[in-house]
């Protein structure tokens, strides 16, 4: 059941991105989509609208980049509650540190071991 819901919610979130690219100006690139998802995900999360989606879709809501934004937002909110102003700055990255570091380190390693083949 969790697999089906992950598939559905994840698929729908991706279709929204596809519509954003196909129905808007040609200048919307993958970079814009990524920035849009992380930012909108963070603000939806702050308004308490993203957690229900995560409860429903599991990885279907956390794997899309909006889930990354959700992690950043919840981290900052928790940080603010626990450590005040310092937590505002540290909370978001603390909550998502594993993903960010993994992406950068794997990116570096891939560049070391592979060449673009086209």
């Amino acid at each position: 059941m969790s697999l089906l819901m992950a598939f559905l919610i994840g698929g729908i979130l991706c279709v929204i991105g596809q519509l954003a690219m196909d129905l808007t100006k040609h200048s919307i690139t993958p970079g814009h989509v990524l920035v849009g998802y992380i930012t909108i995900g963070a603000f939806l999360s702050a308004l308490g609208l993203y957690q229900p989606l995560v409860d429903l879709g599991g990885a279907g809501a956390t794997i899309p980049l909006s889930g990354f934004g959700h992690g950043l937002a919840q981290g900052a909110i928790d940080g603010a509650a626990q450590k005040g102003l310092l937590g505002v700055f540290s909370g978001g990255v603390e909550a998502t540190a594993a993903g960010i570091t993994a992406a950068i380190v794997f990116g570096y390693l891939a560049a070391v071991f592979f060449n673009p083949r086209g």
Binding site: M21, H26, T29, P30, P116, R117, G118
Partner: peptide
Amino acid sequence: HHYSAERQFRFPVEQGVQLA
């Protein structure tokens, strides 16, 4: 050259991009 032009004018070659 396809790939030298691609990296100067468009996206990195290995990036997954759907072309118009």
